[in-house]
Simulated assay, not measured.
Amino acid sequence: MWRSLLCPAMKKRRSSLEREVAELRQRFFHSISPGGLAGDRRGVVPASGFSFSAQQIWKIIKENKDLDLPAHKVMVATVRCEEIANEKLSLLSSDQGWLALEEAVQAGPVSGFGKKLSSILEFYLSEYENEAIYFDEGVRNAKQKQLESRALDAVHQAYVTMLGHLRSKALESFKTRLEQSIQKGEGFAYSVRACAQSCLAEFDKGCEDASIRQANWDASKVREKLSRDIETHAASVRSTKLTEMIAKYEKQIADALSGPVEALFEAGELDAWASIRKLLKQGD
């Protein structure tokens, strides 16, 4: 009887004990989270900045100044985040993948350029985030933006070079296609318009492939330069074709008239000039 009365109470206490043990286990697992055994440690100086932090605290003590802990935390975060950012930028500049990509784009257009460069940048920006995560948020974010800006500056010239290759490739393609279209007997104006549209579309596709996730770089000026180059070449071809056409017809007229005119001079007729004028009118 007593056992039957005690069992529910014991079961209730056992259930409560198990719940408390589970909560304690979670506090161990998440010890640095809010409510964890160690509390929320994001507001304190991380271990990587402790040495510098201790030196600055001792300096303030020796100078007999009041220690402003929030300001001290910001100062430590500024120094350490700057150091981390500089380290990541240095590693980026010597990264073998980046160096290979930079060398390749000097020689010509690189397929998948934007994707490859985005991946390299993302790696070092993520590395910064992981190492600076426990420092002051405002300082950390500001230094991250500076790092991203400096990293983009470091790789921007390679992007410009890539666009230059795309422009040159599109222009050469236009020249080839225009000549082929004219040789097929297509109208000149139609050929220029169709070839220009096709080559500009290819250029746009190449620019999309070269774009990176971390920046919204504008390729419009390079595209405008390509359009002007296309127009200049089309005008040059038009002028050349017109000159060739005029020369061709002048030769045909000369060939058609040279024989009869020579015959009139050899005949020595008195009305030779009148006959020549008549031939010229017939040629017209």
Rank of each mutant, 00 (worst) to 15 (best):
M1D: 15
R3Y: 04
L5Y: 08
L6T: 13
P8E: 07
A9K: 02
A9W: 09
K12G: 11
K12T: 13
E18L: 02
R19M: 13
V21L: 07
R25I: 15
F28M: 04
S33Y: 01
P34R: 15
G35I: 02
L37I: 10
A38E: 07
A38N: 14
G39W: 07
D40Q: 04
R41Y: 05
V44Y: 01
V44S: 00
P46Q: 07
A47R: 12
A54F: 14
Q55C: 14
I57P: 08
I57K: 02
I57L: 00
W58A: 11
I61E: 14
N64E: 06
K65P: 00
K65V: 04
L67D: 08
L69K: 10
P70V: 02
M75W: 07
V76R: 11
A77H: 08
R80S: 09
E83L: 10
I84H: 00
L92A: 03
S93W: 14
S93E: 09
E103S: 06
E103G: 04
A104R: 15
V105Q: 10
A107Y: 10
V110N: 08
F113N: 02
G114I: 04
S118A: 00
S119G: 13
S119K: 10
S119C: 00
I120P: 04
S126N: 06
E127I: 03
A132I: 06
E137W: 00
V139D: 15
R140H: 04
K143L: 04
Q146N: 11
L147Q: 01
E148W: 00
V155W: 05
H156T: 14
A158K: 13
Y159I: 10
V160W: 08
L163Q: 03
G164Y: 01
F174P: 14
F174Q: 11
K175R: 10
T176I: 04
L178V: 09
K184T: 01
K184V: 05
E186F: 09
A189G: 07
Y190R: 11
Y190S: 15
A194F: 04
A196R: 15
L200D: 08
F203G: 06
D204E: 05
A210L: 09
S211C: 02
I212F: 08
I212K: 04
W217E: 05
A219L: 02
K225W: 05
T232Y: 00
T232A: 06
T240I: 15
T240V: 15
K241Y: 14
K241R: 10
E244P: 11
I246R: 02
A247F: 02
K248G: 07
E250F: 03
I253C: 13
D255R: 12
G259S: 10
A263G: 12
E266N: 08
W273M: 05
L280G: 06
D284I: 07
